[in-house]
């Protein structure tokens, strides 16, 4: 279903809205058919809704494909929801059960046939399921990776110890030269899908402006460092799809995703950049990261600047606790 686009930035709500519209349309059609005396029996209506949501919508509409574990969770919850719907009142429950009871009672030729067919097919199906599950699998095993392991309380970079809970980026400053997160937050790029600069004519917003000073100048310097060192993996749009990205498994972090740097304190990113994959703690099993420990290649100032650029470019704010 590529003709109907999932619009970046609106996708989560778009998915829920589409599902709501589909269910509503189904309800209206079923209601009209019922009025005409041709309504879909509850049993089939329930099965239809479940199949539509799980076997069609979640599988073919949402792209990229949803991993099976999540579809299994969704399928189970949807089945519970459908059970709650069809058994909400005793009358509806009776209506839902009727085809099942009819088949089990087998009073007509058709129901007798279905019952017999089920008695034959069910064991065959179960046998097939068991056979498949015993077949050897050559797939790589599933690894439950801890994407954001807990950071240490302190980290030592270039001989200096940083307390992660209290340290601050020295370049996140206002024109007076004081640490000011609100000021830098106000001068990041727009957060919508285009990620545009707020005002290209304003030296406080445009890092390429020759008159840019202070915070925004440091952002430019951070950008230079990023494009000299990081963009090969993390991509020139910071979305984790650089030239080398697909040589790695998993591919590098996508900073434009709301679940990565937007969730983290700036000092967490500082620690991860400085220590790299090799510095992941025990909790970071299975340590699937090839990021180099950048403290071996960059100065502390360069690390802070590149982090600031990442937040500026993605339009996200580093997490703070105050």
């Amino acid at each position: 279903m590529t003709w109907l686009k999932l619009v970046e930035g609106y996708m989560p709500m778009q998915m829920i809205t589409e599902l709501a519209i589909c269910i509503l349309v189904f309800s209206i059609i079923n209601y009209s058919l019922k009025r005409a005396g041709m309504g879909l029996p509850k049993f089939w209506a329930g099965i239809f809704v479940w199949c539509f949501v799980n076997l069609f919508y979640l599988k073919y509409r949402i792209y990229p494909p949803i991993p099976f574990s999540v579809r299994a969770i969704y399928g189970t919850v949807a089945a519970c929801g459908i059970f709650m719907w069809v058994s909400g009142s005793q009358q509806e429950w009776e209506e839902f059960k009727r085809p099942i009871i009819n088949v089990l009672d087998a009073k007509t030729g058709m129901t007798k046939f279905i019952r017999t067919a089920l008695l034959v097919l069910l064991p065959i199906g179960l046998w097939g399921f068991a056979y498949n599950s015993f077949l050897p699998s050559f797939d790589e095993p599933i690894e439950l990776r801890t994407v954001h392991p807990a950071p240490p309380a302190t980290t030592k970079v270039h001989g200096k110890t940083y307390v992660l809970q209290t340290a601050a980026n020295p370049y996140r400053i206002n024109p007076e030269g004081k640490y000011d997160q609100a000021y830098s937050n106000a001068h990041i790029v727009s957060q919508d899908m285009g990620r545009l600069m707020k005002d290209v004519n304003n030296p406080e917003d445009n890092p390429w402006d020759p008159n840019a000073e202070g915070y925004i100048k440091h952002v430019r310097e951070g950008g230079e460092i990023f494009f000299q060192n990081c963009h090969f993996c993390h991509g020139d749009n910071l979305n984790g799809r650089g030239l080398w990205a697909f040589a790695f498994n998993p591919i590098p972090a996508n900073f434009t995703d709301a679940g990565t740097i937007a969730q983290l304190q700036e000092t967490f990113v500082f620690w991860r950049v400085a220590k790299g994959g090799i510095g992941l703690p025990g909790e970071g099993f299975p340590w699937a990261s090839v990021m180099p420990p950048w403290e071996q290649h960059l100065t502390v100032d360069e690390i802070w600047k590149v982090i600031m650029f990442e937040y500026w470019h993605t339009g996200y704010y580093p997490r703070t606790w105050e």
């Binding site: 990229p64 797939d139 498994n249 972090a253 995703d257 679940g259």
Partner: peptide, 14 residues
């Protein structure tokens, strides 16, 4: 699975 991870194109689903 690693194959699903690759097909999804990253750790987070968009």
């Amino acid at each position: 699975t690693p194959a699903e991870l690759k097909a999804m194109g990253g750790q987070q689903h968009p």
